[in-house]
Amino acid sequence: MNINWFLIVSALMFALGAIGVLVRRNPLVVLLCLELMLNAGNLALLGFSRMWGDGDGQIFAIVVMVVAACEVAIGLGIVVALYRRRLPIDVDELRELAG
């Protein structure tokens, strides 16, 4: 299979994730979109790894998976803490700090 297909799919995933982070309001969906962006990177790594015929990219991808899991765990932890404070679960409503 041509490497281009891997790259096209991964670029689409990355763009979808980035758009999702920008437009979706629910922090849980934003976290999902972040996962999508990281996994787009993983797919690109795996495609390139196959192209070069070595294992470096695959090892990199496994490391990234661990990191992504940690990130989501922290994100969910903060969302739960926010929920306990009965704050609105909507990133637009987070205006305590005027940005």
């Binding site: 982070v21 922090p27 934003v30 990177g41 470096d56 990199f60 990234v64 990130e71 922290i74 704050l87």
Partner: peptide
Amino acid sequence: LESGLKYLIVGSVGSATLLYGFAMLY
């Protein structure tokens, strides 16, 4: 809590972008 969540979201976008850059560099 708000600053933590904001930092997490923006920081992760930065990490994902950097990772994609590294993937292309590889």
